[in-house]
Design a binder for these strands. Structure first.
Lengths: 216, 216
DNA sequence: AATGCTATTCTTGTATACACGATTGTTGAC
DNA sequence: GTCAACAATCGTGTATACAAGAATAGCATT
């Protein structure tokens, strides 16, 4: 548990939302949450205020908090922005790559290769996250890294669904290879272009997303 | 005043921070704020939690809240991300431009022209904001627009300082012209490139920024 | 039977009280 | 004279109490 209950509750409720334990549109009753977690309403309210500020829930004055339902279109928009940010991170990584970052990327890339070869989509899901985080870090921009991590976290559930799509695992890894090549070659523009394509959702992948979201 | 005190306080304190009434690094005492605004500590705490979630202040457990000092380097990183997001907005605007957005851009661009011609940097500061907001809206991505507005708001104080730099007003307007041309021509890539250059801080403009920040 | 009004209940919003950890100032020892 | 330890004080963290608005159910009226 974190050092104060409010923060702990924020993480706890955030996880519950991101893992779909609280469904979009669901009402979050302060008293219910308080008794459920065995605390008073005060830290619950503080947690909810923070989640509202982040944009995960909406607090309608005097009418309680509900989990925001982004909807397919909004999720698409979020991937669009994510693609742009990752593109920037990639281009910065290509320009600023140092030994530590290079090793981190190589290591996580290697783990992705193993999971992909094994066809283990759960393992790949995790390794893929680490790979992308390594790129954020390699960009050497704290603010950008922070923004990327936040959006990445928020898109996590949808990303997971997407990996279930046929062949996505192997194509994803092939894209990773090209991205690594571009970054290691110091080609920022190419890294940016590839990452935009890798993260963004174009063409049929949008219908895949919609279908997987509807399936929940 | 907003419908509930917490939200009102959040806006109030946020404005105070962004207008430099609360300096970076300054301690925000809950009791002091409560008495100052004539309310109890409860809504003050809720406001602070939200500002912490947004990233404007940092709440160190049991040690109170302090206004975050981004420092020149972090501000540079923020402008870098802003440039990327505006670039995306511009490219989307070029592709999706409709009559309403076109008129909004034309109108705000016209107002910028007048302020620039008059050499009125305060008026230009305001008109420039509206011009950029018109581009965000033209992109037709609610999420992107939201992100742009949030970051724009956070960078507002630094943007203002920058306009004071010699000749910045006229060069800024010339850049606007090229951006408008690209968007109206439907050239998304060019709009993106120009906006990245317009918003980002390269070369000597970084030292201008540092100097203006130090001057406060 | 359906609809509108009113009263009750339930939930949120704010204030206050209390407890615990951090900070600071003072005193004593080396 | 400086440093350390302890005590007092101050501020944060959580709980609870109270007030006010929103939802709901029941009753009356058409």
């Amino acid at each position: 548990m974190s050092e104060n209950v409010g923060r702990w509750l924020r993480d706890e409720i955030e996880n519950s939302i991101l893992s779909n334990e609280f469904s979009p549109g669901e009402r979050l009753d302060e008293t219910v949450l308080a008794t459920r977690f065995g605390v008073s309403r005060t830290p619950v309210r503080e947690a909810l205020m923070q989640l509202d500020a982040i944009g995960l829930i909406e607090i309608r004055p005097r009418r309680g908090a509900v989990v925001i339902d982004p909807g397919p279109h909004r999720v698409y928009e979020m991937f669009e922005v994510m693609a742009e940010l990752e593109g920037l991170a990639g281009s910065l990584a290509a320009r600023r790559l140092d030994k530590t970052s290079r090793e981190a990327i190589t290591a996580t890339h290697g783990r992705c290769e193993q999971s992909a070869a094994a066809g283990d989509s759960d393992a790949y899901y995790y390794d893929n996250e680490e790979f992308h985080k390594a790129i954020y870090a390699a960009g050497r921009s704290d603010f950008l890294e922070q923004q990327c991590l936040q959006l990445h976290r928020r898109l996590r559930p949808y990303r997971r669904l997407q990996l279930r799509v046929r062949n996505r695992l192997s194509t994803s890894f092939l894209e990773h290879c090209a991205i690594v090549d571009a970054i290691f070659a110091g080609d920022g523009d190419e890294a940016r272009r590839l990452l935009r394509g890798h993260v963004g959702i174009q063409g049929e992948r949008f219908s895949d997303l919609v279908a997987s979201m509807a399936a929940r």
